[in-house]
Design a protein around this nucleic acid. Structure first.
Length: 811
RNA sequence: GCGAGAGUGGCGGAACGGCAGACGCGCCGGACUUAGGAUCCGGUGCCGCAAGGCGUGGGGGUUCAAGUCCCCCCUCUCGCACCA
């Protein structure tokens, strides 16, 4: 072996060797259990990977390697989320076709991942923008369509001036476009495709119980789905026979206290019921509400505003006619776009009523008998008062009573409302998966038959958004003009493409059988490998991607395609790596550190180790290049350890009991920490053990200590450990070896250090045999000179003994 | 405003309610070397010459024992934004 550790001499050699012998090809040995580890597949950007991205890929690679060594068939593959706005925006910016840039960027990502030694089965590489892939994305669209889960609707949709396209509700951030945070969005009316995710709201909510996910992510999903129970009730509009205001309320028990109604300004009823003398004012308000940017409209610091329509609704409970107002604090997109205002029990209604001098009846009294406040709304549950037949009932009972009443009288029903809205999947964009639908003058909306898939994205040079609201595909007659699959007559293709989240809603299945051409996945392979055993990605996908993928999975389950209901039973989020300056790593800030530069300076293994060692996997931290110096130095020390051992002829050795114990303990610790993804402490245990072994001669170390050490390190530093393994006299790859085993008996200490405390302060330490009995240890503690000194002549009042740990003496 | 998470040496971070600061970086001292971002040995929370004392954002509490559990407050990060 060379005197010095030189990653440049060994890493390229093994990289090539592994490639040649296809070392990381997935094995399907029926005698072994399976493990499917998956990282959220990336959009291959032109900037390449940074060391921040590796904080996800390297730890997952370690888990994959560990599981493989621990006896699992491991599926670990990589692919590219290549369709979508980022690729199209990049193409427009650089004036290069995404068909050219995507493969180039993907190849660069792949090169970088290989550079740092990530073990993927590249024969399973997938690309969501390839026809072989998106054929099945289209197939899934049709599956949803056939199951009544895809529909067209005219909607007032968000429009971003910069993207020149429609945005989903989820893509509107603080009233601005998610990609252009300085560009307020406006509304545009277009006919769009939607997926009926609301039909799955309840299951998406309740099945969260089934998964092992970070609690904050589950919570975000629960809040996003936003289930609330209540009642939907209709009040007749006075003087407008047949017209009624339908509204949803979570507090039907406060219905006797309804002193006014509020409609969203966009509510269709507004135009119909506004009285002539109010019309001018109402129209002005509606116009300004529509014109307002959402930043202004959603601001909570803003005082509530509204105008009276001049119309009244009849409250059948109180018997009063109450005024109907419009206000922008009522949203058309939630519930029915109308509310009953119970200002005594709702703070927003209270503020509104106060401002406009509306009546504030009190219909709920505190259950403890105190008086309801008058300076704010009483929003808690209590006892119904001033409420006719509800008087004296507790809130829960009153809610049930009102629900029963409205159902009996045919004016409403108990119901559940969700915050989540249907998923808008139409994109008026070129670089996406074409929606496989044909419009026929005779047959209407016709699904493209399965055997005519894929509907191929045409080659075109001018794919700039038209700005008219239609996709650039509308400008390609060869694409648009087709024949109706049903009648054979002339027809037109849908020109919208699918939201990129559609592509990522099923890709995890494709890895099971990436080249299968008779379906999206080969059923046996799908049911063998799925669900994903460990899914890892950033917390930024907490709601959109993870909800959509869960929904598709449930649709597939309902269609009998798969036998599981949750695609990702175990989810972990890696922590964000900020640049050294604490900011986000970005090219524009000039603070990006690339793996290429780090590998060049310190080697891939040292970079990997620092990615693992810099902090807990799930926590954010700042990049610090100094750390890589440390891990490179550590590897040089391991190199010296192994070199001395090899030069001594790899002696079987006669390790002392203590040495054997340390070796077995290290295996136990590292195994446990890797299993729990505590890579930083796993590596710390290895460093600690190195410090110990370094002081021994090769014969004192013995073969087990050295080989088990190298085997464990191999999952983290694959290149140098492959070199070690061969130098240690083995012919095969270390990466096909088994994870070392430890003997629990051998990890047991012979003596323990017992701490002796007097009044909570450590005053002495005792070395006691591991099997010493309680009485003996207590006696030793009380005999201690240090203890006597601190007892100061007093006799102990109490002595607490924690076996093997401490004796606490209270004087 | 609501929700979630986090505050520990100069720095990254360790620590089933039981010796706070493992491991590493940095720094200090030494050894060996004619340059190599080398290696090895020792030291390194703060105050103190010492015995000893003080220390996990601040303040209370529970406990023989609190970084860890409970209450109040401060700061930072992330998520959500009037959800009827």
């Amino acid at each position: 072996m060379d005197e010095r550790y030189d990653p440049k001499k060994i890493e390229p050699k093994w990289r090539e060797e592994w490639e040649q012998c296809d070392l990381y090809r997935t094995r399907e040995d029926p005698g072994r259990p399976k493990f499917y580890g998956l990282e959220m597949f990336p959009y291959p950007s032109g900037d390449g990977l940074s060391v921040g991205h590796l904080h996800n890929y390297v730890p997952c690679d370690v888990i994959g390697r560990y599981k493989r060594m621990a006896g699992f068939n491991v599926l670990h593959a990589m692919g590219w989320d290549a369709f979508g706005l980022p690729a199209e925006n990049d193409a427009i910016l650089k004036k290069l076709h995404p068909k050219q840039t995507v493969p180039r960027y993907a190849a660069n990502f792949k090169r970088q991942l290989k550079l740092v030694g990530c073990a993927y089965d590249w024969s399973r590489e997938i690309n969501s923008s390839s026809p072989e892939y998106y054929k099945w994305t289209q197939w899934f669209f049709l599956l949803l369509y056939k199951r009544g889960l895809a529909y067209r609707a005219l909607g007032s949709q968000w429009w971003c001036e910069k993207c020149r396209t429609i945005l989903a509700n989820e893509q509107v951030v603080n009233g601005c476009c998610w990609r252009h945070e300085d560009t307020p969005v406006s509304k545009k009316d277009l006919e769009q495709w939607f997926f009926k995710i609301t039909a799955y709201a309840d299951r998406l909510l309740s099945d969260l119980e089934l998964v092992d996910w970070p609690e904050p992510i589950k919570l975000m999903q629960r809040n996003w789905i936003g289930r609330s129970e209540g009642a939907e009730i209709a009040f007749a509009v006075a003087g407008h026979p047949g017209k009624e205001v339908r509204f949803f309320t979570t507090r039907p028990d406060t219905v006797f206290g309804v002193s006014f109604m509020v409609l969203a300004p966009e509510h269709p009823l507004v135009a119909q019921i506004t009285s002539p003398e109010r019309r001018a004012e109402v129209e002005a308000y509606v116009a300004q509400a529509r014109r307002q940017s959402d930043i202004e409209r959603l601001s909570t610091v803003k005082e509530k505003t509204g105008v009276f329509t001049g119309a009244y609704a009849h409250n059948p409970f109180s018997g009063k006619d109450v005024p109907i107002w419009i206000a922008d604090y009522v949203l058309m997109g939630y519930g029915t776009g109308a509310i009953m205002a119970a200002p005594g029990e709702d703070q927003r209604d209270f503020e509104f009523a106060r401002k406009y001098g509306l009546e504030i009846p009190i219909v709920t009294a505190p259950a403890d008998g105190s008086t309801a406040p008058t300076d704010r709304a009483f929003t808690e549950h209590g006892i119904a008062v001033n409420s006719g037949f509800l008087n004296g009932m507790r809130t829960a009972a009153a809610i049930a009573a009102v629900c029963q009443y409205v159902e009996q009288h045919g004016i409403g029903k108990a119901t559940v409302s969700y915050r989540i809205r249907d998923w808008l999947i139409s994109r008026q964009r070129y670089w996406g998966c074409p929606i496989p639908i044909v419009y026929c003058p005779k047959d209407g909306i016709v699904a493209v038959p399965d055997d005519q898939l894929p509907v191929t994205l045409p080659d075109m040079t001018d794919y700039q958004p038209s700005g008219t609201g239609r996709s650039p595909l509308a400008n390609v007659p060869e694409f648009v003009n087709t024949t109706c699959p049903t009648c054979g007559g002339p027809a037109e293709r849908e020109t919208d493409t699918l939201d990129g989240f559609a592509c990522s809603s099923w890709y995890f299945l494709r890895f099971a059988s990436p080249h299968y051409d008779r379906g999206p996945f080969e059923p046996q392979a799908g049911n063998y490998w799925l669900p994903v055993d460990l899914y890892v990605g950033g917390a930024e996908h907490a709601v959109m991607h993870l909800l959509y993928a869960r929904m598709w999975t449930k649709v597939m389950y309902d269609a009998g395609l798969i036998n599981f209901v949750e695609p990702f039973p175990v989810l972990r989020n890696q922590g964000m790596i900020w640049a050294a300056d604490g900011q986000k790593m970005s090219k524009s800030k000039g603070n990006v550190v690339t793996p290429d530069a780090m590998v060049e300076k310190y080697g891939a293994d040292a970079l990997r180790l620092w990615e693992l060692f810099m902090g807990p996997f799930e926590e954010a931290t700042n990049w610090n290049e100094e750390g890589v110096v440390g891990t490179a130095r550590y590897l040089a020390r391991v190199w010296n350890l192994v070199r001395r051992f090899v030069e001594a002829g790899c002696p079987e050795g006669r390790p002392a009991v203590e040495t054997l114990r340390r070796a077995h303990k290290t295996v136990a610790t590292v195994t446990d920490h890797v299993e729990r993804m505590r890579f930083n402490t796993a590596l710390a245990a290895l460093m600690d053990q190195l410090n110990y072994l370094q002081r021994l001669t090769p014969a004192e170390q013995g073969r087990f200590a050295i080989e088990s050490y190298v085997l464990m390190l191999a999952a983290m530093a694959p290149f140098v450990c492959e070199e070690f393994w061969r130098e240690l006299g083995h012919t095969g790859s270390i990466h096909l070896e088994s994870w070392p085993r430890f003997d629990t008996e051998l990890t047991r200490d012979e003596t323990l250090t017992v701490v002796v405390q007097v009044n909570g302060k450590v005053r002495d330490r005792l070395e006691v045999p591991a099997d010493a009995g309680e009485a003996a240890v207590r006696e030793m503690a009380l005999r201690s000179a240090a203890v006597a000194r601190h007892l100061d002549g007093k006799s102990p009042r109490k002595v607490i003994y924690v076996p093997g740990k401490l004796v606490s003496i209270v004087a």
